[in-house]
Design a protein around this nucleic acid. Sequence first.
DNA 1: TCCTGCTGGTTGCATAGTACAACCTTAGTT
DNA 2: AACTAAGGTTGTACTATGCAACCAGCAGGA
Lengths: 144, 144
Amino acid sequence: MTQRDDSVGIIQQELTAFARRARATAARMHPELSLVSYTLLAHLEDQKGCRATDLAAHYLLDKSTVSRQISALEKLGFVERRVDPDDHRVQVLHPTELGAQVLASAGAQRRQAFTDRLADWDDADLERFASYLLRYNEAQQRLG
Amino acid sequence: MTQRDDSVGIIQQELTAFARRARATAARMHPELSLVSYTLLAHLEDQKGCRATDLAAHYLLDKSTVSRQISALEKLGFVERRVDPDDHRVQVLHPTELGAQVLASAGAQRRQAFTDRLADWDDADLERFASYLLRYNEAQQRLG
DNA sequence: TCCTGCTGGTTGCATAGTACAACCTTAGTT
DNA sequence: AACTAAGGTTGTACTATGCAACCAGCAGGA
């Protein structure tokens, strides 16, 4: 067992531990907006509106899952649907004013939690950690 | 928005993206053993047996959740219960021979996937990434 | 024009994972 | 003996998810 293998083992173990906790932690932080809802809503804001199909493709979710998530967000008044005049099959989804507010609030809370956890890191370490995560996720997407 | 804030933002985003994918990815890799089951079974092996309560405490799960997970693992023949002779309330849980085999196989598959994703990293980066994850998770546990 | 096939979305069904509360059994204390 | 605490199980409910069946609108070709 080389030192390299040790590192891989630790990375596996720690990422797994993180994944196991993530949903529950997010739910505790802002019960109003689950991890998934938060992500979808954030994407809508980022993209200035998109279709349910785009969300499904981007997050590797089934379209039925997205459909239900969006219904829930709509029921909460966080999302509105605008039928595309050029293609009546399509609904372009947008955050509502309220949705944007809730998103901003949840985002601030999330960001604060991360900032706290990373408070005693120096800038160089933070930047390197960020670049490692980007690199890792890029590889994961590439390799499935 | 400082460069530091950017780094925090990226870390948040990438860890979130990872968490969103983790369960589904794990499920695709070895349908026999979900992420949670895998983790519980691995803990049993690590600890050379422990109680359901210990698992619940360690993974911040409700004891009912653990109870059901263990029932499922037992039904699959991966776990056996041994009543503690000193305290008949207690069941000490152990992986069975079969459970250990499945665990080893799933573990090898998981490890291989990580090894592939990290194939083109040099040793120093791997070691640093591993240490960052340890540090991050330690802080998360400390801060809740 | 009409049939066929494709695309975007919804709905019915099934499953996993989870929590909470009520409960049972066994230990330990007073 | 009576009470309390600890380890587990079970009933109930809810969220997230996928698959399959379906509907509706669009686009192309015979």
